[in-house]
Computed example of a mutant assay.
Amino acid sequence: MEVRLRTATGEDYHAVNAIIREGQEEHAEALPDRFAKLDHVVAMGWYRSFSDRTDKEIIVAEIGLHIVGVAMLEMKRSPNYEALVSRKYAYLNELAVAAAYQRQGIGKRLYQASVDWARAREAESLELNVWEFNERALRFYASLGMQTLNRTLTTNLLK
C-alpha cells in the first residue's frame, strides 16, 4: 500500500469533508450538547480560503485515487497583548484519517508533514485542540511528543 501526500485541490472537497465528518460524528455522539451531526462539516468557503495561500495548507493522504486522510493547517500569531510574548505558530485545525485506514501510519505521516510545513514557515510551535473524551487522539498526539499546554474548564449552569 503506497500512501502519497499532496496539497489538496478544489476537487478534493467532498472526500476531505467525508473524512472529517467521521470525526465530527464521533464528537457529536460523545458531546451532543457541543457538536452537531452535519453532512458538510467543512464549509466550502472555509475550504476555499486555504487555496493559493502561503499561510494555509490542506494536505491529503491518498492511496491510489482515494483520499484516506487530511491535515488542515494555518499560520497564526499570538494576540497583541502586553502580557503575552509575541510568537508565530502553526495551528492544526484538522488531522483525520478515514476509519478503515487508521493505525497504518497515515496519521503519523500527516503529522510529520504538518511539522515540516510549519518549520518551513518558521513557526515556533505546532498547536492543536483535542477534546478530553477523545482518549485515542490524546494517546496518539502524546506518542508523537505533544504535550498539554492548557485546558478549558466548564460548569453546566442548566442543571
Rank of each mutant, 00 (worst) to 15 (best):
S49Y: 13
E22P: 10
N134P: 06
L65Y: 11
K159D: 12
D116T: 05
V115P: 02
R151Y: 06
V97W: 01
T54L: 11
L92S: 00
L157T: 08
K37G: 00
I20C: 11
S51R: 15
H66P: 05
A8D: 01
Y91K: 14
F35V: 05
V60Q: 05
Y141C: 03
W46A: 14
Y141T: 02
V115M: 13
K88V: 13
T148P: 09
W117T: 08
S114H: 08
Q147D: 11
E127M: 15
E26G: 01
I19T: 04
V68D: 02
L95T: 00
E2D: 15
S86T: 14
D55V: 06
S86M: 15
G107E: 02
S125A: 13
R34I: 09
H14L: 11
D39K: 08
P79Y: 03
L110C: 00
D39I: 09
R109L: 04
A8E: 04
A71S: 11
R53T: 10
L158R: 14
K88E: 13
A99R: 05
W117L: 06
A18I: 03
A18C: 10
L126A: 06
A36D: 10
T54Y: 04
L92C: 10
R4T: 04
E124M: 09
A71N: 02
F133V: 08
A123G: 08
A61W: 02
Y141S: 04
N93P: 06
V115S: 07
T7W: 11
N150H: 09
M44N: 14
N156Q: 13
I58T: 07
L153H: 08
K76F: 07
Y47C: 09
E94L: 10
V42Y: 05
G107I: 03
Y101V: 07
A123S: 08
R139G: 02
Y91P: 05
P32E: 07
F133Q: 00
M146V: 03
A36F: 07
I106E: 03
D12G: 05
R151H: 08
S114M: 01
G69T: 05
E26A: 06
L128S: 08
N17F: 05
P79C: 04
G45A: 15
N93C: 14
G105Q: 13
A99N: 10
Y101M: 14
Y81M: 13
G45F: 12
A30C: 12
A83P: 10
Y13Q: 07
V41K: 09
